[in-house]
Design a protein around this nucleic acid. Structure first.
Lengths: 230, 230
DNA sequence: CGAATATTTGAGGGGGGTCAAATCAAGTGG
DNA sequence: CCACTTGATTTGACCCCCCTCAAATATTCG
């Protein structure tokens, strides 16, 4: 049993469609759970009947081959939804990239609840459609863009999704902090860690961006970056 | 106004969730339209407020860059759904790969109808979730697989989705006919037409498959093909 | 049969992968 | 505070897979 009234994503997650009575019913089914950085919540092919909302932290959705190659197919932020409703098994591995908190539901219970709450289901549908659009545009990046175009596109998208999470102090325009390292950038872009690193170094050399620390990025010349993104 | 009672996909499309009264209401909003091979139904970024069901034929969803590179991000078969409900503009170009028939709706009308028919909306949600899973697994292929793995994976998936559409006569096990040419295979796999052709020729040389004609494929050794798919 | 289009085949080069080593950052214990 | 360890990132050298450009061949259609 969870108290949703104090939930940090109460108004942004799919729960926003529910009124006080409904949310209490849903809250009874859910429980809050902490996940440590690196910990895996769901395994690809696993039958674990679990869905969840993300409260805090960032998680990745990973598909991997038998021989260990990995592709990150989705990045999940607070208020986003995890898991596969109306399915049998999880189609990908879900792992925390930072320490995180999620609000977990039994999938069967959730499916049933969703079926009787059209507004929630419509919210879920809208979210899924957005994810599908994002995934398909990522397919273009993976299939047709060069390494430099990939890195530029990635930085621009991350700048969108991460801007304004600064520490309160006024950060330079274009500054943001990535919640993950080089290997994971590579796994998102379908590149190797070396190529990723080289592209970033090259962009720094050209003055398009600064790299104050490992995970910090400052985009100096957004227009140039957009041109590079193809 | 369309007569849904004789529709070829009446029981497979999302319309299957509706009863006789409802389907008549929906039918009033829709109209059947023929689309010629090569003709484009929706343009990427276009505001055309249109969604549709596919009755016959095969269409492709395409994302392209400013300089003309193309990536096919989805293939649409009969009973599948086209368009972006609850959105402003079409996120990709939709073009017919064969002559096709679609059942078109004004998006605003459809959105409204869907909002008041939870069963239809749930069918749409399930479909969208399936598409999302498919797209994400395709991301792994695009980002991490080699040319031969790509072609093998592609042929196996097409064999699944196209098997049993033979001309009535008993076709060899593993036979199917692709509804598109080499360039389009390349655009699906994120390869060039030359690499695609070479991989197919190589597989024929190894005896894994036969190529009776340009668009026909016969998988001789499915196990070997699965191994190659990675 | 000839023209237009699609596919195959060939030759060559480059972008990004692989392997290896150097450098950097963050702890940890003395 | 510093030596030392550990893991992440960068840099370098090399090479292979796939792309590019070009030409030959096959197929379709008027």
């Amino acid at each position: 049993m969870t108290d949703c009234s104090t939930c940090v994503v109460r108004n942004r997650a799919i729960c926003a469609s529910l009124d006080a009575t409904e949310i209490r019913a849903l809250g009874k089914m859910g429980r809050k759970q902490k996940v440590r950085q690196g910990q895996t919540l769901l395994w690809e092919g696993d039958g674990a009947p679990v869905v969840a909302n993300v409260l805090t932290g960032v998680l990745k959705l990973v598909v991997s081959t038998a021989d260990g190659r990995e592709q990150i197919v989705g990045i999940v932020f607070p208020s986003d939804f995890i898991g596969r409703p109306f399915g049998k098994e999880s189609p990908y591995t879900v792992t925390a990239m930072t320490d995180a908190e999620v609000c977990i539901f039994n999938r069967n219970n959730f499916d049933e609840f969703a079926s009787s709450h059209p507004d929630l289901q419509q919210k879920l549908l809208r979210r899924t459609l957005d994810e599908l659009d994002r995934a398909r545009h990522w397919m273009m990046l993976l299939g047709r863009k060069s390494a430099s175009e990939k890195v530029a596109s990635f930085l621009l998208e991350m700048s969108e999704r991460l801007s304004g999470q600064g520490c309160g102090a006024t950060m330079p325009q274009g500054w943001f902090e990535l919640p993950f390292g080089r290997q994971q950038i590579a796994d998102i872009l379908g590149l190797t860690i070396e190529t990723t690193s080289r592209q970033l170094t090259k962009m720094r050399g050209e003055g398009v961006l600064d790299l104050p620390s490992r995970r910090e990025i400052v985009i100096n010349d957004r227009a140039a970056m957009e041109t590079m993104a193809g």
